[in-house]
């Protein structure tokens, strides 16, 4: 059984911006470990001559021409913003 620590669960949830209760953290710790166990089974297979798969579609070079296609309803997107100021999205102060 894979051993995911509670600290790792906390770190992953922090990176995903999720705040977990103790109970949830416990649940995910067990589930993460099970997921890794399943992956470990696959690891037993010989994949020496199998190239890494990044896409299962069997396609490449799906491209579009470089011709502008304005959306035309940019205002609607802005209307979904929790907060706006003029033409801008307004967010909490971030400064480096």
């Amino acid at each position: 059984m894979a051993n995911i620590t509670r600290e790792e669960v906390q770190k992953i949830s922090k990176l995903a911006k999720l705040r977990l209760t103790e109970k949830e953290a416990e649940l995910y710790q067990a589930q993460f470990s099970k997921i890794l166990d399943s992956m470990a089974e696959l690891r037993q297979l010989d994949t020496e001559d199998v190239p890494p798969t990044t896409s299962v579609l069997g396609l490449s070079n799906v491209l579009r021409e470089d011709s502008p296609a304005p959306f035309g309803e940019a205002e609607d997107l802005l209307a979904n913003a929790p907060e706006r100021e003029g033409p801008y999205y307004k967010v909490r102060k971030v400064i480096e």
Partner: peptide, 22 residues
């Protein structure tokens, strides 16, 4: 002329904010 993954124009420098979006 357009963005990497959509048809929005790349001439937004100096333009009104959020007018080249989709």
């Amino acid at each position: 002329k357009t963005k990497l993954f959509c048809g929005c124009a790349t001439d937004g420098f100096g333009a009104v904010a959020n007018t080249r979006v989709c």
